[in-house]
Design a protein around this nucleic acid. Structure first.
Lengths: 217, 217
DNA sequence: GCAAATTAATGATTTATTCAAG
DNA sequence: CTTGAATAAATCATTAATTTGC
């Protein structure tokens, strides 16, 4: 018998297909209920857990972003190079970089508080490379698709407790604290247990400069 | 009646005290079972959920690290300054930087827990600034404490499926996919739903240089 | 004293980074 | 090398402290 329980989830092609379709349709950070539904749906095609769905979207989102970033970076560098060498090099970009919409009238006003005060900590981070602030590569919601269905159809609660939920919060929907035996309420003494040792990282003058640097590993 | 449901958890002093005590005792990233127990314990003192415990440890860990980092930074800068000016300035440090023990013969062996368990992946990251690799500021386990108790006492399973679990994984312990009504297996069509728009950030050549830079606002 | 205005803490979310299985 | 899994860092957002003018 296979004694290797295969520690990690191995998605079937159908599962991947469906997940990708959902992603393409705009799903990025499904909430608890949505993850439940997706999981239930995909479990028809193979073994799957909620956390698999959760991680999949997390990873896919991150890696799409990273991919795009890399592409834009390459594009940028090419442009610089071309500008430098004074060559026109029409369609030289090796990959079709989806044209970043300049977002003509992005309100992105300065961090002015409703009180009319300058914010002490301008969260509008330093304008990256040349990526427009509000540019989201895949937020477009293709309305004609019905692979991705109404995920919040069950239980049309009016109060909808898990309304704005997203990401990790889904883990909180089931308050399992009630699933404990009633005997462990005042649990007077607890023993200590080991923890993972993670040393300090980061520097005083952190200069990450990581992304897009054609890592030659 | 208070119509403000108070979206976020407001820990009671007792809860904070206990959590801090646990942290001091070495708890850093409790796993699902541990979180369950802690939650059950703390729920005696006030409303609390598992995710609150999870977040608390996450935040506390991060912020302790950050605090220490800052202190070390200041210390470092002071040292540099003093070395530069060739002044001895004995105890000039404005804050008591917990002296990073040079640990002459720190066996800093792999993260071996008191239980004799090897931790999954030590994440021995790139050596930062000047912080010794295996230096964990609060990993010391004070053995005489019984505020923190044996958290993994319930259910001494032999197979122990959630053995090396930690952090977010606790959310996966309850495979709620089974808690769904059996009717929703092949869920043929799902409707799309809106997602939060989160734009790109980060740069190609990111140079944040944020921390420790005595911001003169 | 107090209440609006700010600031500091900190709970909650999202993003980036890293590890390692396949 | 791809990608599932896990963790850390960054960020957002709300509450508590604290300040400030009256």
């Amino acid at each position: 018998m296979p004694q290797t329980p295969s520690t990690r989830w191995c998605p079937t092609p159908e599962q991947v297909m469906i997940l990708e379709e959902m992603y393409r349709s705009g799903v990025r950070t499904p909430n608890a209920a949505q993850i439940q539904q997706i999981t239930a749906h995909l479990s028809f095609y193979g073994k799957i857990e909620g956390k698999n769905v959760f991680y999949w979207f997390q990873n896919h989102k991150a890696r799409e972003r990273q991919k795009l970033r890399r592409r834009l970076c390459r594009h940028h560098q090419l442009l610089l190079l071309n500008n430098h060498h004074h060559q026109q090099a029409a369609g030289a970009a090796s990959e079709d970089v989806s044209p970043p919409p300049p977002s003509p009238t992005t309100p992105t006003a300065a961090p002015l508080t409703p009180h009319g005060l300058l914010l002490p900590h301008p969260h509008t981070t330093t304008t990256p490379c040349f990526i427009p602030q509000g540019y989201n590569f895949h937020e477009v919601t293709v309305p004609g698709l019905d692979l991705v269905g109404k995920l919040d159809s069950v239980e049309t609660l009016d109060e909808d407790p898990t309304a704005g939920m997203a990401a990790e919060e889904w883990m909180a929907t089931m308050d399992f604290s009630a699933s404990l035996p009633p005997c462990c309420r005042p649990l007077k003494t607890l023993d200590l247990f080991p923890t993972k040792s993670t040393g300090l990282k980061e520097d005083c003058s952190s200069s990450k400069s990581s992304s897009c640097s054609t890592s030659t590993n």
